[in-house]
Design a protein around this nucleic acid. Sequence first.
DNA 1: TTGTACGCGTTATCAA
DNA 2: TTGATAACGCGTACAA
Lengths: 350, 350
Amino acid sequence: MKRKVTLKQIAKELDVSISTVSKALRNSAEISEDTKLKVQAFAKLYNYRPNNIALSLKNRKTRTLGVIIPEIVHHFFSKVIKGIEVVANKRGYNVIVGLSNESFDKEVLNMEMLANGSIDGFILSISKETLQNQDYHHFTETINQGMPIVMFDRVVNDIDCDKVVVDDYSGSINAVSHLINKGCKNIAIITTKDYVSVGKLRTQGYIQALEDNGIQAKPSLILKVDDRQVSDDNLEVLETIIGEMFKENPQIDGVFAVNELYALTAMKVARNMGITIPEQLQVIGFTDGVLSKHANPSLTAVSQHADLIGQTAANLLIDKLEIEIDDEVDESYQTTTISTELIERESTKS
Amino acid sequence: MKRKVTLKQIAKELDVSISTVSKALRNSAEISEDTKLKVQAFAKLYNYRPNNIALSLKNRKTRTLGVIIPEIVHHFFSKVIKGIEVVANKRGYNVIVGLSNESFDKEVLNMEMLANGSIDGFILSISKETLQNQDYHHFTETINQGMPIVMFDRVVNDIDCDKVVVDDYSGSINAVSHLINKGCKNIAIITTKDYVSVGKLRTQGYIQALEDNGIQAKPSLILKVDDRQVSDDNLEVLETIIGEMFKENPQIDGVFAVNELYALTAMKVARNMGITIPEQLQVIGFTDGVLSKHANPSLTAVSQHADLIGQTAANLLIDKLEIEIDDEVDESYQTTTISTELIERESTKS
DNA sequence: TTGTACGCGTTATCAA
DNA sequence: TTGATAACGCGTACAA
C-alpha cells in the first residue's frame, strides 16, 4: 500500500528542501530547469496531489459548499442538488449535503457542524418547523460570522441574503387562468397552511386569477391541508377531506393543487367518484415531479425548473465567495426569480 | 460582524497561553478551576467551536464520507443517500456527494478530487460507462492508498472491498414465481443489456423461476433494452419495441420489468392496445420508486429497501474507519445482501 | 499549574 | 537558485 505522498517525502527523497519542491511543482521561475524537471518527474511518478485539507487551512477557504435541504427523497430537491452539483463542479467546488428532515433542531445542528470551517457558504431551503417557529437566529448568526447564505424556494424576507425563488404567485395565476380559459367555472384549490410561504403565495395567485376574471373566491373551495398530518404513506386523511369537498361542492369543474401529491390524490378521488378527467374535471398541479408525467391521465403541471434554481443558487454563492476579497463582505443582496412554465398534458382539455 | 473566534484570540484576550486555553476547554486536570472557569465562560460567550479543518489536518481524519452515485434525481439513489445521511449524522460524520452522471471520466475526476484529503472513505455505485469499460483502476488505486470503499447495488467482483447488494436474483425469482402462482403461463421480461450487473442477475432469476416451474424460457419473451437509447424524455423507442413484442406474442399474460420505467411503459402500451390489467395481463416491476404506488393501476413491485442499503453501507464504512487504528488496514471484506420484499398492488391479481 | 515546542501539509516571504 | 521560517488552528508531550 502506497500512502499519499507529501511534499516532505518528495523533498527527503530528492534531498532538497520542501519549499524547493513546492516551487518546482508550481513552475516557479525561481527554480532551475534541472530541479524543476527532476521534481516534476518524481511527483508525477508518485502521483503527487496537494492535500486539500492543508490547502483549506492555509487559504482559509475550503472550496466546498454546504447544502441544507429538508428532504432529499423528493424530486424537486434532488433536481436542485443536481443543478448545484453541476455548477459547483464546473467551478471547482465540492458539495456537502445536510438534511434537516423538516426539523428545526436538525437544521441548526447541521449548520453548526458545517459552519466550523468545513464549508465556505450555504445554500439552503428552510425546514417547515423553522418556518413555523419563525426562529431564524442560526441564519443571522451564520451571516454575521461572514459566511454567506443563499436561500432557495422556501425563504424568509427577514433575512438579508441572496435568494432564488420560484414565481409562485404568477405561476399560480397562469395555471388558474388556464383552467378558466379551458372553461372551468368553479375552481377549487388544494393548498397548505399559510406558514409554508410557497403555499401562501400560490393561494394568493389563485385568488388573484379568479378576481382578474371577475370570479369571487369561495372559502368552501379553498382547502388548506395541514401537511403535518399527511405523508406519502398516509393518504387516507387527504383522500377523505378532498372527497368531502367534492361531495359538498359537486359544481367543482377544476382543481389547482399546490403540489403533486395533492393533485394526484384529487385525481384518484375523482376517479373513484366516477368523475371523468378532463371532461368533467380539469386538474393542474404545481410541481416538477415525475409522477405528473406518468400519471394516468398525465397531469398538466406548473414546472419550477428545479435544476435552474440549483444552478442559479450555486452561481450566486460562488460569485459572492470569489468577489469577497480581503474579507470585504459584499453587502448587496439580490433575489432572483425563476419563471415557471405550464406543461400541458392530459388532465386539462386541449 | 464577529468572525469565528480561535484559541489564539481567546488566549490573547485572557492573557494566557494557547495551550492553557485548549486544555481548559477540554477540562484538563492540569488547569486550575479558576482559569478553567474563566476560559470556559469566555469561550461560551464568544461561542467558540474548534475549527474542523484544523482538526482534520491534525488528526488526519476528516470525519467525512464521500458518496459517488451515477444520478441523484432518482428515487432509489436519493433514498440510499438519505440512509447514508442518517447513519453518518448519528455517528458524527458529514457526507460529500459527487455525481458521476453515468460517466467514467466524471467518476474518476470526482474521486480524485475527494481522495486528496477531503474524505476518509467512499461509498459508491458504479457508473454504467465504467461497467462497460471494465476499467476499475481508480478503485484499486484508491484502496491501495489506504482509503476504504464500500460499493452498493452496482458492484464488481474484481474489486476487494465491502459491498452491499440487493438480492436481485432471488428477488426476481420471487416476483416471477408470484406471477406463475397467479396463473400466468406466458411471462415476458423487460430487462437491460447484460453489462448492467443488476439487469443480468434479474434476468437470470427470471429464467430460473421459469425453469423451477417447468417452463422453458422463450427468447422472444426476453426483451433486452439498450438503456442508452431510452431516457425519461424519450420513451417512444421503448413503447415501440414493447408494443412489437406484445403484437408478436399475443399470448403474453405476465410481464416482469427490471425497473419502474419499463414496467409503467409496458402498462401504458398494454392499456393503449386494449389489454386490461390485471385481468388479461399482470405486471410486476423491480423498483422502489414512487411511481409504482401512484400509478393507475398501482404497480406490484419488488422493493429494494434503498434506505437500508444506505444505512448498511454507511455503517460498514464507518466501522472500517474506526477499527483501522494505527494505519493498520483491516483487510477483511464482506458482502451484505439486503433482502427484497414483494409489495402487492393492483397490477397483479389478488 | 502554566507555558513552550512540535507536527499535521501547504505556501509565501525573506534570507542566503 | 535554493532553503529556512512563519503561518493557517489545533492538541499534546514535555519542560518550567
